[in-house]
Simulated assay, not measured.
Amino acid sequence: MSGTVETWFDQPLVFTIAARHVRGRLVRLGPVLNRIVSAHSYPPVAEQLLAEALVLTVLLGSTLKDETSQLTLQAQTGGGPVELLVCDYRGGELRGYLKFDADRLAEAGPEPTLFGLFGEGFLAITFDHATTGERYQGIVPLEGSSIGEAAEHYFEQSEQIPSLIRLAAHHDAEAGCVAGGLLLQHLPQGEVGRDRLHARQDRPDWDHARTIAETLKAEELTDPATSLETLAWRLFHEEEVRVDPDVMVSRGCRCSTQYFAGVLAQFPESERREMADEAGLIQVDCAFCSRIFPIPVSEIGAPE
Score class of each variant (00 low, 15 high):
C177Y: 09
Q201S: 08
F288C: 12
A232S: 09
S41F: 12
A199L: 14
M1L: 14
L71V: 10
G262P: 01
L85R: 02
R234Y: 07
L117I: 01
L182R: 06
S69A: 04
T211A: 12
G78S: 10
R254G: 09
G176W: 00
S69V: 04
A261Q: 13
A276I: 13
I125M: 10
R20M: 02
Q258S: 15
M248C: 11
D88A: 04
V22W: 01
V297W: 13
A53F: 08
P224S: 05
G138M: 00
A51D: 15
F127S: 11
W233I: 07
S290R: 14
Q189L: 07
T222F: 04
C253L: 02
V82P: 03
A51W: 14
Y259I: 11
V86C: 07
A130T: 09
E149F: 11
K217F: 08
E174D: 09
G80N: 03
G119K: 00
P162T: 00
E191C: 02
L235M: 11
A209T: 08
C286N: 11
L114D: 00
I125L: 11
D244V: 12
Q137M: 06
L197K: 14
E134Q: 08
P110K: 09
T57H: 05
R272M: 00
E214M: 14
R203F: 11
Y89Q: 07
R251P: 06
G92I: 06
K65R: 10
G121E: 04
R23A: 08
R20I: 00
P245Y: 05
G3Y: 10
E191F: 02
P162V: 00
Q185Y: 00
F288E: 12
